[in-house]
Design a binder for these strands. Sequence first.
DNA 1: GCAATAGTGTCTGTAAGACAATATTTA
DNA 2: TAAATATTGTCTTACAGACACTATTGC
Lengths: 275, 275
Amino acid sequence: MSPDPRQDERDFLANYDPRAYDPVAVTVDVVALTIRDGALHVLLVRRGEAPYAGMPALPGGFVRAGGPRQGEDLPDAAVRELAEETGLEAGDPELGRVHLEQLGTYGRPGRDPRMRIVSVAYLAFAPELPDPRAGGDAAAAEWTDVAALGLTESGDQRPGTTRRLAFDHARILSDGLERARGKLEYTPLATAFCGDEFTIPELRAVYEAVWGEELHAGNFHRKVLSVPGFVESTGTTSDRTAGRRGGPRPRLYRAGDARLLHPALLRPGREELIR
Amino acid sequence: MSPDPRQDERDFLANYDPRAYDPVAVTVDVVALTIRDGALHVLLVRRGEAPYAGMPALPGGFVRAGGPRQGEDLPDAAVRELAEETGLEAGDPELGRVHLEQLGTYGRPGRDPRMRIVSVAYLAFAPELPDPRAGGDAAAAEWTDVAALGLTESGDQRPGTTRRLAFDHARILSDGLERARGKLEYTPLATAFCGDEFTIPELRAVYEAVWGEELHAGNFHRKVLSVPGFVESTGTTSDRTAGRRGGPRPRLYRAGDARLLHPALLRPGREELIR
DNA sequence: GCAATAGTGTCTGTAAGACAATATTTA
DNA sequence: TAAATATTGTCTTACAGACACTATTGC
């Protein structure tokens, strides 16, 4: 490496194609998912300005730069945006329980009418977080049932859907949901939607909410317990009565130490989708 | 939407946090993989300038911008970079057989010492492409055996490796290889490394090169034929003798119409990697 | 001829899914 | 008491992997 990075930088700025300096802005958008009342919800904000003023959008914003070695890393920007919109402090331990992963990057020319914007989308999975309105300066953000958005597999929204998403956020959310559905198959991600301790039926409710289909209780139960490291017993039983309509008290489990599920829990009935 | 996008743009540029306009450049980098002589190879260029002058790097370059609706989309930029470095024309039908997918985006501050750069990495799978040197103005690019790069699972290169990659390209390549290994399990991607017609042993050689382990010929053969839509018979046999050391002439197959393999071909012996 | 390989057959352990049975709880 | 639910058991079918076998080719 050259002994003088600033000289490098001057050479660099002087030499290469100036078209590359047409402004390109980099943003992060966050698809934050949680389970509320047994249904999958996504965090949406209401846009205050044009374009798409008044329409719901994914929380997001510009990545802070400031020089070659200054500014924030992309995952940090995603956490910051999530914290700002949920009203949680950036250092809140509640945020430590949130699983965050990069989803993909969207840069089609024209996706933002104001300027060329490349957006790095992140996917966040959280157990029930406080309602965004409770936070101090939290914007008009709220958890929205994804079923109400009428998303199709192709990333569009069905005609007649009242809550249309801004920009290409329907596509990004659609990709995020598909990623989440797939990850539930071969990782213990579903436990990230639960509290520290949870029952097998609660875990099954997570799978049913994300996959959108009912699962056979008995087979699911045996299967989860048969995957090494998926869950570990606490030896106690749940005394929560909310949502239960009878039957014995279910046992409580914690997340195990597995990072991959083997064998995987495959989604039923995907034969038609394969071709 | 506002009736005057240019007014939107002026408002936009006037109003928001100017720190976002600290220059951030967006590049694409391409992890192009192919099989040569039974070993997995990646396309690398030799850097001509500081930083990392003389060191091998992934092919890549700046995304062309030019205004809100001008410039190229990210996948187009990746195809352009790949075409430039391989010496193929951008419209060459040979490029149409290349499978391209987004790998991930890397934006850690300091990853490029000159300025803040966010790089969108793409993964390309191709059957044997012409040698880059054959192309007209092709840079000093060449296919490199990935085994010679001494990559570890953590994305570093083993001490003593002579060909050290520039920037964080060892990490990017490492992520690309892991993605490729995984995709071979549940998609028919391996056929993208083969010609139009191929034999089951050739297909097995692809799996062995990418996974880095030998597979049982008999079980692999039966398994491939049992997955619906993976391959379809041509009714002919291969008369190529290159690489074969005996035995009957293998039958020829084409890629089938499956987009997912069901059941999947799982990598053997991953029990240790699960925790 | 000899060694290597393509392709098929067989057997065993594991897993998925349908279904049933029992015990325990809420309403 | 009736209905719902947690948990376990049983059975069938499918599949992965180990191994064996035969036929066909290159050298």
